[in-house]
Design a protein around this nucleic acid. Sequence first.
DNA 1: TTTATAACCTAGTGGTTAACTAGGTATTGG
DNA 2: CCAATACCTAGTTAACCACTAGGTTATAAA
Lengths: 160, 160
Amino acid sequence: MRLSTKGRYAVTAMLDLALQDGDGPVTLAEISETQGISLSYLEQLFACLRGKKLVRGVRGPGGGYYLGRPSKEISIADIICAVDEWVEFTRCGGKKDCKDGKRCLTHNLWDDLSNEIFNFLGSITLAQLIDRGGLKEEGCIAEDQTPKGDLISSSRTQAA
Amino acid sequence: MRLSTKGRYAVTAMLDLALQDGDGPVTLAEISETQGISLSYLEQLFACLRGKKLVRGVRGPGGGYYLGRPSKEISIADIICAVDEWVEFTRCGGKKDCKDGKRCLTHNLWDDLSNEIFNFLGSITLAQLIDRGGLKEEGCIAEDQTPKGDLISSSRTQAA
DNA sequence: TTTATAACCTAGTGGTTAACTAGGTATTGG
DNA sequence: CCAATACCTAGTTAACCACTAGGTTATAAA
């Protein structure tokens, strides 16, 4: 799993798209303006998202992008995996020689952890994030240590 | 939050250290050998870990590294934050001008998500990973889709 | 006291990638 | 037709990852 600013851009853009769901197509120029991401870079990100059917583009004047499927069926993991392709972590990875058990142990441990993170992100949908509604106040002050409610359902069963 | 192979190296190395907890100091040369990470790169990673008091070095022959504190008090987030420094995501970040509410909304949404991920990783300790014990079989075959038990306690209250 | 072992430190390096720029082509509503 | 928009490809700059090289301390063992 890889989680960088690239993935963050994609998630932010998708969030922007989801917020305007039902209001007709959203142009990349708008997102570029709103989120402060370069238009051409957005195009590249959306090329990845389109490839995974997470968005649907409409050409011509009045065109733009729609979500490829309902926001409750798009997980954060879906988005991140679309743009930040999954890097293989284990070197032995079940196929190479891996002599001593100790090495395998840490590999398996990490592998499990990696899967847990993936499942976690896979359990968070765009709809969930938005349905939380007016999280934090109107202003732009982002408090960090505020105790939060249940943003995430504790089920974590919806692996992608 | 950033989650790359660099952080993975650190977690793997710390896991190796935790597995040998109580067996005297572990040399970086051993970890380098076991995990296939270059010695000098390990030294740099451990310089970060030492700075955050996650490990304690002992010089001289017979020296090596100990965990800086009990493995149940070291979270994955601790480790990753030590080597993969936290990147600030929001551009407005509570301090800059952020005119329209929409922009703030997506920023806040992402900020929340980022905190959730952080809290999630902060809830997983080295001890927890190890106490799971013989996860998966002896062999090195890493099955991906095996349903898992509760690797992570669902409380998620131990933010770092 | 010497010596080998290990941590500890600093500077560089090649390769990869992120993020962006530039310049197109294709499609479609007005 | 024309303008707006998606869609495409090839660069470019800077950052960063993973590593190499070559040190300096500190200390247990000889």
